[in-house]
């Protein structure tokens, strides 16, 4: 049996088979939820925004022109809906933390995580949650969702050069923390 690709499903939805949207939901719900959970740092908020994101995607389905991949287009909706949610909740402190200059904040969080971490992978996962939103997202999109930098730049609405700089900075801060705790010695 031929496996349906995103474009087949979208074509079917655009023809009026709206129940086929459930196939897209099943395919992207975990990745989108993971992104929102990292972005909003709260499970219930992430679920609410996830539902809104899929609803927006469905309502805009007729406007999808296949100019980019569905995943990129959808992630963009997810990211923008998450940002709007943060703005509406006035979580400005989280939005302001858009630079890695705030070392004191990160060192404080690092100490707390180090006290509870079970292993180095868990430590990395927790410390990513403490990074500024865009730095955390670039790590998730690049390593977990396996997206290209060009796709990430489209989702985050930044230039390709800025996406690359953001990835390098995020990697460097994680590298410095790994180096600080000597976790690299676990490397095989």
């Amino acid at each position: 049996m031929r496996k349906l690709c995103d474009n087949d499903i979208i074509e079917s939805i655009q023809k009026g088979n709206r129940d086929d949207f459930a196939l897209l939901v099943d395919k992207y719900k975990d990745k989108a939820f993971n992104l929102l959970r990292r972005m909003l740092r709260n499970e219930m908020d992430a679920e609410e925004v996830l539902q809104d994101s899929f609803l927006k995607a469905f309502m805009s389905m007729n406007n999808f022109r296949h100019e980019s991949k569905f995943s990129t287009w959808f992630y963009r909706i997810v990211y923008n809906t998450g940002l709007s949610f943060l703005q509406s909740k006035r979580k400005k402190t989280e939005l302001k933390l858009d630079s890695l200059e705030d070392h004191n904040y990160l060192n404080y969080e690092d100490g707390k995580i180090l006290a509870v971490e079970e292993n180095s992978i868990k430590y990395l996962s927790l410390i990513i949650d403490k990074l500024p939103i865009r730095n955390a997202l670039v790590i998730i999109l690049y390593y977990i969702d396996d997206l290209k930098l060009s796709e990430i730049s489209e989702i985050l609405d930044i230039s390709l050069v800025n996406a690359k700089v953001l990835l390098h900075r995020s990697r460097n801060i994680l590298r410095d923390l790994i180096f600080k705790h000597n976790y690299q010695k676990e490397l095989l």
């Binding site: 993971n34 990395l124 990697r171 976790y183």
Partner: peptide
């Protein structure tokens, strides 16, 4: 080595799954 560790480990970090019945 620390950077290589980040490269390898970031791919293995925990993924939060969507709640049951979300579809």
């Amino acid at each position: 080595k620390a950077l290589q560790y980040v490269e390898q480990s970031a791919k293995r970090i925990e993924i939060y799954s969507a709640p049951n019945g979300i579809t």
